[in-house]
């Protein structure tokens, strides 16, 4: 298990190195010259050149990459050119907000989605199943921004129950903080729920037809034990994978939702960086997003092992 974990960590590091090179090269290839951006439209060539020298932009690419990568390894993500501040704190703040959104949304999606999926599987073909299918289809078929706008209109503008956007730190009180989260979370849940519910339903239906479920029934186990203890744990594997991908997705920033609800997360930060051509900020943000994706997937694989002893065994053997 430990060896497996080490291997996975090593490959994760490798992926991040490759990613960092790609990020660096691609952002360098973006149109526009950083030095002229900073210097402004009417600056003379000398000023631009001076800024370039100061930022080390006259150096060969490999040297620039080396300096960037070395900084990151020392915990220095660089300075934002536009905000003229160190990137680290800005990024961490945005990441923390996205993390809150991701964790809350994911917990809700997992709990509600798995419950609906199990319910639909157990009542397969009956009205409950069809209702779950219908509702989840509606969630998946209607674009997320539509839900966002509808929710803002109903709860924000008409009922005036919830703030229509923005963010309040938890230090200013739990309720205001939670109130700002409700609408973005609900929108995200509507967007992600259908897939989780349908996936859980189909793998649950498969598992309910297995011999070990039949045998559990033959042992006289109550149906609740059969479903929760015997079937669900085995049915969760595909759901875990998708949940991990969704987690990475939200963490990486859900631009549309963050924009509509003015939620200052990773998505809006990245959008801002790109619009303003803030190269160091773009690079750092993308790198952190990729790292988050990788970590989410690693967590999923470890959860797999937790759920399925056979996988755990395979890890021990390797």
């Amino acid at each position: 298990m430990f060896a497996y974990f080490l291997t996975r960590l090593a490959s994760l590091a490798l992926i991040l190195v490759v990613m960092s090179v790609l990020i660096f090269l691609v952002t360098q290839a973006m149109p526009g010259d950083v030095a002229s951006m900073i210097a402004g439209q009417f600056a003379s060539k000398e000023v631009v050149d001076a800024i370039a020298v100061k930022l080390g932009l006259d150096q060969p690419l490999i040297v620039q990459y080396g300096r960037w990568a070395a900084g990151i390894l020392q915990g220095d993500l660089g300075r934002s050119l536009v905000l003229e501040q160190p990137i680290g704190p800005i990024l961490m703040e945005a990441l923390a907000r996205s993390l809150v959104l991701a964790v809350v949304a994911l917990v809700v999606v997992a709990v509600v989605g798995i419950a609906l999926g199990v319910l639909a599987a157990v009542r397969r073909g009956k009205l409950t199943d069809q209702m779950v299918s219908g509702i989840s289809y509606l969630g998946i078929a209607v674009p997320d921004f539509f839900w966002a706008i509808v929710l803002v209109l109903i709860f924000g503008s008409y009922l005036k129950l919830l703030p229509t956007g923005g963010y309040t730190p938890i230090s200013e009180g739990f309720l205001p903080w939670a109130a700002h989260l409700v609408l973005p979370v609900v929108t995200l849940v509507l967007m992600l729920l259908a897939r989780i519910a349908r996936l859980t339903r189909s793998s649950m239906i498969d598992v309910l037809q297995t011999n070990y479920v039949k045998f559990a029934r033959a042992k006289g186990m109550p149906e609740s034990v059969v479903i929760l203890r015997h079937a669900l744990k085995n049915a969760l594997l595909p759901t875990i994978t998708v949940l991990a991908i969704d987690f990475g997705l939200i963490l990486g920033g859900v631009v549309v939702i963050e924009t509509i609800f003015s939620y200052p997360g990773m998505g809006r930060l990245l959008l801002f960086a790109i619009q303003r051509h803030d190269l160091p900020l773009i690079q750092a943000t993308i790198l952190i997003v990729s790292a988050a994706y990788c970590l989410a997937n690693l967590t999923a694989d470890l959860l797999y092992a937790f759920v399925n002893p056979k996988i755990r065994h395979g890890m021990r053997a390797s």
Partner: peptide, 15 residues
């Protein structure tokens, strides 16, 4: 009590 055909699939792999 019952015993079924396929022992390989009659036991729950997760327990």
């Amino acid at each position: 009590a019952a015993v079924f055909q396929d022992p390989f699939t009659s036991l729950n792999p997760a327990l």
